[in-house]
């Protein structure tokens, strides 16, 4: 028992309005290391939690530029530099005939960058969670909103955090230990 470590205090919610209210309260109380697990995205909840806007679009844009650059370079270098082949007197390279492939490679690389960046930003795949044995936490992918305030938060203390959770209307407030 002595080497058990506090991981987080969890509380359940069923009502989307209450979880929204709770998220605002948690943010206003100064907690930063907390999360809410929900079965579907709740509009505006990320904002209420104070989640910073994701940098994902910039990564996607990087992918787009990389794809476009590659397409132009590929067609120009193979056709106009490495092996000039006269086909019906058409130019060795021109933007016009390059448009379809420039477009397709841009889309392809943007999609791949978005895919990789999404999972990297979410910290996935990660097949283990400290909370995974908690029944309430597991029902977060079904029909429960689970608020979790982690022990790593500077403001965390078992008594006050538990009391705070009860005050903002969480059900079944509980401590998770590892």
């Amino acid at each position: 028992m002595s080497d058990s470590k506090n991981i987080a205090v969890l509380g359940n919610f069923k009502d989307p309005n209450k979880i929204m209210h709770a998220a605002n309260k948690v943010r206003e109380s100064g907690y930063t290391d907390f999360d809410i697990y929900t079965p579907y995205p709740i509009h505006g909840l990320d904002k209420a939690m104070g989640v910073k806007r994701t940098i994902l679009p910039y990564i996607s844009f990087g992918g787009a530029m990389f794809g476009l650059g590659n397409a132009v370079f590929l067609m120009w270098w193979t056709g106009a530099v490495d092996y000039k082949l006269n086909i019906g007197g058409k130019p060795f390279f021109s933007v016009q005939f390059g448009i379809p492939i420039m477009f397709e490679l841009t889309v392809l690389l943007t999609a791949l960058a978005t895919f990789v960046a999404l999972w990297a930003l979410c910290g996935l795949p990660k097949w283990y969670s400290d909370l995974q044995d908690d029944a309430g936490f597991n029902s977060a992918v079904d029909d429960t909103f689970v608020l979790s305030i982690f022990a790593t938060d500077q403001r965390f203390s078992l008594e006050t955090t538990t009391k705070f959770m009860n005050e903002i209307g969480a059900d079944d407030v509980r401590l998770i230990e590892a």
């Binding site: 809410i36 994701t54 994902l56 999404l118 999972w119 910290g123 936490f137």
Partner: peptide, 19 residues
Amino acid sequence: FGWTGSMRAWHHYEIAYMI
């Protein structure tokens, strides 16, 4: 992939879906 339903993940997810 170990998806937990974390709202912080949903935030990235919704943008990725939109893109």
